[in-house]
Design a protein around this nucleic acid. Structure first.
Lengths: 220, 220
DNA sequence: CGCCAGGTTGAAGAGAATCAAGTGATGTGG
DNA sequence: CCACATCACTTGATTCTCTTCAACCTGGCG
């Protein structure tokens, strides 16, 4: 199977670097193609794809659905490292063992690739994108709760390539553990954004972006 | 000039992944050697080495002193991405422009290397380490103030290879902006650790680790 | 000796967490 | 098709941590 354009996270991860009014920047490490063999694996909601500490010998490309990577701290707190959407590749880690586990957020189809078949150039491109989104995630955690939620909504909208509406596949708990907040704070913040007419919430997982300018301003 | 072992951040960045009681793990991307040409550059305290947005065409290896990378948010808040010590390499970024700026914390001597002279394999190894420390930094920001400070002290001690005493080159403001706290909170937390006899502070920048077990427990 | 930046300490306040009680969706079995 | 159980989400009241604002030390250095 030929994957024409490997993509690890969406283009949204460029956002933070672009706030100073500069133009679009070419990626330093353009993504090559990569041969992928094997049939797609289907996984049910919440199924574990790999665990923290497993040998990190495979990469995974998402055909459909959503995946989260996460890590549990000793006191039981959970930190989500990222969400991965169709077309994204996850499983490239800086060690020979996975440092985060990966789980299906929704029903998911993934294609596994042996890491060994990827070239250094390909791995570099993937890791570069992973670093970029981790840096953005880190900057996100320096913000206030409304700013985090606004950034999250804009990131998701951009990755889905949707200007007006976002279908969140993940639960409030997932969002909270990604943003470093509690579910109550996430819920309250969303409600407040709705009351200000910045967003609408036709259902709890469907978000209509009614005022992107306000969200972007919050994004700081 | 031949650099025998490129090192981007110290080995401490493995710590978070090692909490589950597993043994030491070999890095997935062992570091090769890299020829470095040109004389060391000397820089005064607070000198800027490169700015956010500059073309990211050079890597820098520290011969002496300490460097910080940082980014300013639109509201003036500053986030420090990391501190770099002698032997560390910084300046490898996921884009073709620097996403963080780099500044001398102390007087510093650095050796510049054109990024183009490094192979994909070498860049991969460097980026892998950068990703690892960014992931650890991210996990750190999910913790409470005492936990962040304890983690910071242990990280510094490990990177300096010092079991008992750490000479912090950076100011309270630098520490605060790295940990996502205010200087007052950093100061108060250090004072409290001193009152509990977990550390001693012979001077404001010199920290004696009197009770590593307590620090590690805080490190969670 | 006194200035000044960096650091510490105190008191008050804001923001998010926690604890607790609802409300609303989803799914299952009768 | 409906009653009910369950789970996710929302909302409210309170607590607590960290920030903010302010005053005060302390240690280098002219």
């Amino acid at each position: 199977m030929e994957i024409e354009a490997l993509r690890l996270r969406g283009p949204s991860t460029h956002r933070f670097g672009r706030l100073m009014g500069r133009g679009v920047v070419e990626p330093a490490y353009p993504l090559p193609t990569l041969d992928v063999s094997g049939p797609p694996m289907s996984l049910a909601r919440n199924a574990e794809i790999y665990a923290e500490g497993d040998p990190a010998d495979h990469l995974y490309k998402i055909a459909s659905g959503m995946v989260r990577t996460c890590k549990f701290l000793v006191d039981g707190r959970r930190q989500i490292g990222g969400f991965y959407l169709p077309g994204d590749i996850f499983g490239l880690e800086p060690e020979s063992e996975y440092t985060f586990s990966a789980e299906a957020v929704t029903e998911v189809e993934v294609i596994a690739v042996k890491r060994a078949v990827a070239s250094s150039t390909q791995l570099l491109a993937l890791m570069s994108r992973e670093l970029q989104s981790t840096q953005n995630h880190l900057l996100l955690l320096a913000k206030t709760a409304p700013e985090r939620v606004a950034s999250f909504l804009l990131e998701m909208a951009e990755r889905i390539q949707s200007a007006h509406e976002v279908e969140l596949g993940m639960s409030r708990q997932d969002i909270a553990d990604y943003l470093g907040l509690t579910i109550e704070t996430v819920s309250r913040t969303l409600t407040q954004l709705e009351n200000e007419s910045t967003i609408a919430l036709p259902t709890s997982k469907r978000v209509v972006l009614r005022n992107r300018a306000t969200l972007k301003r919050l994004n700081s």
